[in-house]
Design a protein around this nucleic acid. Sequence first.
DNA 1: ACCATTTTAGAACGATCAATCAAGAACGGA
DNA 2: TCCGTTCTTGATTGATCGTTCTAAAATGGT
Lengths: 195, 195
Amino acid sequence: MGRPRSFDEDAALTGAMEVFRRKGYVAASIRDLEEATGLKAGSIYHSYGDKAGIFAAAMTHYNRAVVDARLAEHAPVCAGLAGLRNLFVSLMHEPNGTSFGCLITNSAIEFGGSTKVPNGVDIGLRTLAATFEQRLRAAHRSGALRRDLKPAVAASRLIALYQGVLVLVRAGWDKPALERMIKDEFKHLGGEYDA
Amino acid sequence: MGRPRSFDEDAALTGAMEVFRRKGYVAASIRDLEEATGLKAGSIYHSYGDKAGIFAAAMTHYNRAVVDARLAEHAPVCAGLAGLRNLFVSLMHEPNGTSFGCLITNSAIEFGGSTKVPNGVDIGLRTLAATFEQRLRAAHRSGALRRDLKPAVAASRLIALYQGVLVLVRAGWDKPALERMIKDEFKHLGGEYDA
DNA sequence: ACCATTTTAGAACGATCAATCAAGAACGGA
DNA sequence: TCCGTTCTTGATTGATCGTTCTAAAATGGT
């Protein structure tokens, strides 16, 4: 059956993913990818077809290895609204030097000008939105959510807030102010306010 | 005194701006800029130094000609909270084919990976945030804002929501859902909710 | 009219881009 | 063992990148 692959595909995709997160799709060169994956250009093209191919693979890897893991770590089902809040707050506590940005946000912006937004962007956004809505519905049932709030609309606000926070963090916006804002938002969701 | 410029600098910068909004900084080539500005490469380099120079000029032009104009059109001081709401809603009513995206958001993402975020990003963001806060403070004084809301925190939420909406629109997210979310958010701000 | 100065135009530069190719190396099945 | 297949490597391709350069065209001051 021929020679098997000698490289660790997960490690290679992780490297590629980091390059794309840091520099974006266009600015990431094949030589950057060689360095980050440990593969030579020939191997990259053999395994993934072209630059768009390894990007698609890296994006899929991101959704599975980063987004899903982040949701599971900070906002498991049992953690309720507080878990969601932790998820948001965690966006601002990544060490500055090793911050790569969100591949979903970055790709939405970079490819959004053309008509061809990568599938992974939509998949990632839907994963986030579905998780938000699920947690809000559970909070709605348990009474943890303010009674006059509709989970679907609140989830819509959270997905927008989430992307907005990622933009502002990347722009170097004041993090303490963002954190205050997030805590305030979740106070609202929990109904800890007088009208 | 030598020969004066024969091209319309505003028109040239508008063209350059559109290219950068649509394709991003890296993907925009000097040849793209030649076509969009009507200038030849030599003239561009003579007038703006290098690619980063014409980008900086385009960014300044954007803040003055697009951001300020948009704020004045949709959210003048007299329009109060409703003006802000119109501003948000207008983000989703740009004709699809001619949508260029927001140069501030796009640049924050594209340059955010490096340590050098362009000045124009911060300037534009501060303009938006300051306007939001000013309108919210006015609404606070007039009683149009829910009494338990602090204008500064609410402005912080609005700037994040604003950037988030721009990301989602660029990603092709469901616009009617976004519009419902925005209208809901402004209902909250106006206190039109029971607790 | 003439000069000094600046803007244009277009060709040209080296560097780097994504992608290809040929050849050898390494494995599984027979 | 040996064959067929697949993987790896490094050199190489043509295209395009940002930038520079040269020379002509155009203007204002004197």
